[in-house]
Design a protein around this nucleic acid. Structure first.
Lengths: 215, 215
DNA sequence: AGGTAAGCCTACTCGCGAGTAAGAACGGAC
DNA sequence: GTCCGTTCTTACTCGCGAGTAGGCTTACCT
């Protein structure tokens, strides 16, 4: 016995521990700068175990994306579904859940969306897919909100537009929150609703903004 | 004569050519996956020239960030300054210039803001700095817009918030634009103004959004 | 107890890519 | 012509990190 044998654990558990560690390291270093040895060490395991269970560095990263993406999307959707009857309140509930999630799992967010241009098309596609799936959830709510108005002058394309505004703004606000720790997730979500949703409602009511007439 | 001597050009010119190539390759592959040989080849030069002029891969990347960041910021600022007297029209002009810039120089944008978590603190700091400098330009306009109202219920912190919303939304909308090529930069900027600026104006006017009273 | 499969490790290989040494060709200046 | 500085190249070194070979150990089953 080499004195160095660690506690044995079933594969299921180890896999999750490895992914836990990987999310931290990928988040901190980025995909390429991340070193598998560091991940395995943080997971309390040796490198070959990582390869045995996850296949390759790329496979490991994809596993991270999949798991974290699923968690985030579930958090959003479940909150939205429990958020009342109107799209408005559902969107609000979803946004609260979103900001709560990224507050608590900053690493997940970083791994999910701050790695876009990196590595071969395989992973890039995975990352794009993950972001799109979140955007789609938001767009669905916005579309429902628009559809409530019959005479609406906004259509499906506008829902996509607003969805991107919301997701992009939320992403960026993640940074803002770091410098304003006194603002919790709920307050940030409320602020965002106040700007974007109110703006959209105004546009729906026909009060648009137009640039001053030019030449 | 080794038949392989290329046209000789002064350092100034070569440096720019190298940076041109580097922006393309960094944008396509990401910092770590980018290979200096590919950059030098694309620049029509041999690798040692890159090291002679830019020092290291890191130095090369920083040169890219600096140059592209400066270009983008100038584009925004010059448009804003020429955009009339009110913060409103200046912001509008700035946004138009921004979207026009990223439409035409997508690579620059990708290199500037889609590389955050990568490499040592040195470059990460540079990237953060670049994004911040753009955000600051926007925030200044928003703050001016808010300050126009005397009885404003929004303050400096809100300007920062709205600035982050705008920059984040704009970032995300670059993806949306790729899937909607029929929308040019001006139309996207107009849409964004319609949502965000109108929303903010409403809040300034006191029409806020509040969640339905909860337990 | 003996077999066996799952969990785990040490100690490698080996290619890729950052960075460099050493000098060749060109273009003036005098 | 012949010097000198700049531009440019071929042809390396060398470390780092992804991935692996091969085997040891513990838990459980019969």
């Amino acid at each position: 016995m080499t004195a160095k044998q660690r506690q044995r654990l079933p594969r299921r558990v180890r896999e999750q521990q490895i992914i836990d560690a990987a999310v931290q390291v990928f988040s901190k270093r980025g995909y390429h700068a991340a070193v598998v040895d560091e991940i395995s060490e943080l997971a309390g395991i040796s490198k070959p175990m990582v390869y045995l269970y996850l296949g390759s560095k790329e496979g490991l990263f994809i596993a991270c994306i999949r798991r974290e993406s699923e968690r985030l999307r579930s958090a959003f959707r479940e909150a939205a579904e429990a958020g009342g009857d109107s799209p408005e309140t559902r969107l609000w509930a979803g946004l609260r859940a979103f900001f709560a999630f990224v507050t608590e799992h900053r690493d997940s967010w970083v791994v999910l969306y701050r790695q876009a241009s990196e590595l071969g098309d395989v992973i890039a596609a995975e990352v794009v897919q993950a972001r799109r799936s979140v955007t789609d959830e938001v767009v669905a709510l916005v579309r429902a909100g628009i559809a409530e108005r019959e005479d609406s002058r906004l259509g499906g394309k506008d829902a996509g537009f607003v969805g991107h505004v919301l997701v992009g703004a939320a992403d960026s606000l993640t940074d803002w929150m770091e410098r304003h720790p006194e603002e919790d997730a709920d307050r940030v979500a409320l602020r965002l609703m106040n700007i974007v949703w109110v703006g959209m409602r105004q546009v729906l009511d026909g009060e648009t903004w137009a640039p001053p007439a030019g030449p």
